[in-house]
């Protein structure tokens, strides 16, 4: 049975918008995830960082939601980055070829360092 516990919190940090994802990313996460992205995107930041370090589980519907965000980001010229993915999900992002379009960092500090060095 899918868990419906999911939260997405938006904050601004070192020139980027960070979205902290908490819980399980599945079909129940759609509204919260898209809402957080819209809130983060409203300030027209250059980069949006998805922080997965508190994500317990992602199913295939959850990955499709990330694709939706990536498509929106590419359309509006934003960079979408990730940090905190477990080794397993790093592999999943590689299988699904999301990694072709998103820079993946081990943690938030290195991700924000990457944002600074490219701006």
């Amino acid at each position: 049975m899918a868990d419906n516990h999911f939260e997405a919190k938006v904050r601004r940090q070192s020139g980027a918008v960070v979205i902290d994802l908490i819980g399980e990313i599945n079909s129940f996460a759609e509204e919260a995830l898209n809402g957080a992205y819209a809130e983060g995107n409203s300030g027209k930041p250059e980069s949006i960082l998805l922080n997965f370090s508190r994500v317990d589980y992602i199913n295939s519907t959850g990955i499709a939601l990330i694709v939706g965000l990536l498509a929106q980001a590419r359309k509006s010229g934003r960079r979408l980055l990730t940090c905190g993915l477990s080794d397993h999900y790093v592999e999943i992002f590689k299988i699904t070829r999301l990694s072709d379009f998103m820079s993946m960092y081990a943690d938030e500090v290195s991700a924000l360092g990457g944002v600074k060095s490219e701006t």
């Binding site: 499709a64 990536l70 070829r97 999301l98």
Partner: peptide, 14 residues
Amino acid sequence: QVVGPLQGFGQLWQ
């Protein structure tokens, strides 16, 4: 190789 929704040519539809 497998290809995802970001690798194709046409409009992306859900």
